[in-house]
């Protein structure tokens, strides 16, 4: 089975039957002949002691919960993924080759022996590690396309990404996604793509023309920023595992180029329809 996400082809295969969460189903691609960017073998069960002695490189955890850990594994990497419902029990282990394009995902089978190889958070982790080897980023952002321009809105959680994208949607713009986007370069233009969510949504894409770093404000305001400030602020909202210099260099180069051809604004807004015209008038 192949998935096509943001122009990436992900080949999934297994000796056992496996399933995908419903958000992935619209991304299943019928073109089996397509050369995959990454191959993923899904294996039932996690061997004991698989990561014994491996050096820890990175930990993604909050105060009370583990999300995943990254380890050095021969010339490649390994991930220990923790279950987000049962908290802190191991859900999967993934082994990656040196070039990060060959994955083997060991999964604890479900109650009916079912396998969910991309069960959250494995899916987004797989997508992130696709971007570190390509000219691409994943960013916490919403994106809309009004038929003329593609606009991306990013900011801290609670700063209005969903609110502002809904206001654009109500004005007739197409919503690409309101939470997470992949940005890639195609020819001389940058494009934004949605990724599978916990709900089913068709694959969407749009050219990317402007980026707004948003926040709620007592009045609508917007100010164009550029140079190192723009690069650092956009990069801050990208998903990053910064334990490897190569990953950082790749993302820095990409965001630098993105910000050199895409206008970046710091935009404060009131949560009403007026922000749509305000942005159009002030870009």
């Amino acid at each position: 089975m192949n998935l096509k996400i943001a122009d990436f082809t992900i080949k999934l295969f297994s000796e056992k039957p496996f399933q995908l969460e419903e958000g992935y189903l619209p991304f299943v691609d019928g073109d089996e002949a397509c050369v995959p960017d990454v191959s993923v073998e899904c294996v039932s069960g996690i061997p004991d002691n698989l990561l014994d002695g491996c050096k820890s490189l990175f930990e993604a955890r909050s105060e009370d919960q583990w999300f995943y850990s990254v380890y050095e594994y021969h010339a490649g990497l390994a991930f220990r993924i923790f279950n987000q419902q049962t908290r802190n029990s191991v859900q999967q282990i993934a082994i990656l080759n040196e070039t990060l394009n060959d994955w083997k995902i060991y999964t604890v089978p479900g109650p009916e022996n079912d396998l969910l190889p991309l069960k959250y958070p494995m899916g987004p982790i797989l997508l992130y590690y696709l971007t570190v080897n390509h000219e691409a980023i994943i960013i916490h952002a919403s994106g809309v396309f009004d038929g003329e321009k593609g606009r991306l809105f990013t900011g801290f959680s609670g700063f209005g990404k969903t609110t502002i994208s809904n206001l654009w949607k109500e004005s007739g713009a197409k919503l690409i996604n309101d939470d997470r986007l992949i940005i890639r370069k195609r020819g001389n233009r940058f494009f934004m793509f949605n990724t599978p969510m916990y709900y089913p949504a068709l694959p969407e894409e749009a050219p990317l023309d402007t980026i707004h770093l948003i926040r709620h404000a007592p009045e609508n305001t917007t100010k164009k920023i550029s140079g190192a400030l723009a690069v650092s602020k956009v990069l801050a909202f990208c998903i990053q595992n910064n334990f490897d210099k190569r990953f950082i260099e790749n993302h820095l180069d990409f965001v630098n180029e993105l910000c050199s051809v895409t206008s970046v604004y710091e935009t404060g807004f009131l949560p009403d329809a007026g922000i749509v015209q305000y942005v159009k008038d002030h870009e």
Partner: peptide
Amino acid sequence: ELVLVPLSNNV
């Protein structure tokens, strides 16, 4: 100018 990103072993 210069942009600096720290290497990090956690989020």
